[in-house]
């Protein structure tokens, strides 16, 4: 916003516009700042979530992990969805170093020693929820150590990325 149009004219006139412009800039800054603090969510990996535990309990969190296919349970009567997610690194460089997102998700599910967490979500079963999908969940960590998700975003990297060799064998 540094390139405000130049307004010519008397200095009093100019002041009027400068003050008006500053008021608007201040309003936008205030809106951004207050909305950020009101709705900021910590983005954590499963490992970070488990290690912080009580520290972040009750706060708005965003957690990303790999869906463990065998753990998916769905009760259609109550629309209660339960599943486990396994830890995947949050850092991109690390993901790349371990062979790309699809590989990392695959390894995370295959490795039983990885940190895992139980997730409970209430709502329709999402179409993309399946083994080795990446789940990005918004919600809170409960007293019982279960992550209660309000929102569930799923991505299947294999759809888009280099899954050719597996494809060819399959």
């Amino acid at each position: 916003m540094e390139d405000l149009p130049v307004v010519q004219g008397s200095s009093r006139n100019r002041m009027k516009f400068v003050v008006g412009g500053l008021l608007i800039v201040a309003a936008v800054v205030y809106l951004i700042a207050s909305s950020t603090t009101a709705s900021a969510q910590y983005f954590l990996t499963v490992e970070e979530l488990l290690s912080k535990g009580a520290e972040v309990r009750g706060r708005d969190l965003r957690v990303s992990g790999a869906v463990v296919g065998d753990s998916i349970e769905y009760d259609a009567q109550t629309l209660t969805l339960k599943f486990m997610v396994a830890h995947v690194p949050g850092d991109n460089a690390e993901i790349e170093a371990q062979g790309g997102l699809a590989q990392v998700l695959h390894d995370a599910v295959a490795d039983p020693t990885r940190p895992r967490i139980q997730v409970i979500y209430n709502g329709p079963m999402p179409d993309l929820l399946k083994n080795e999908a990446q789940a990005i969940m918004t919600g809170r960590l409960g007293e019982d150590g279960v992550f209660y998700a309000d929102e569930l975003l799923l991505k299947c990297p294999t759809k888009y990325e280099d899954a050719v060799p597996q494809q060819a064998e399959g």
């Binding site: 809106l31 951004i32 950020t36 900021a40 983005f43 965003r62």
Partner: peptide, 17 residues
């Protein structure tokens, strides 16, 4: 620490605008 903002942020901040 990665901190994200979701739809409530956008709704709150853009609503008055």
């Amino acid at each position: 620490q990665k901190v994200t903002v979701g739809p409530p942020f956008y709704e709150r901040a853009t609503g008055p605008l």
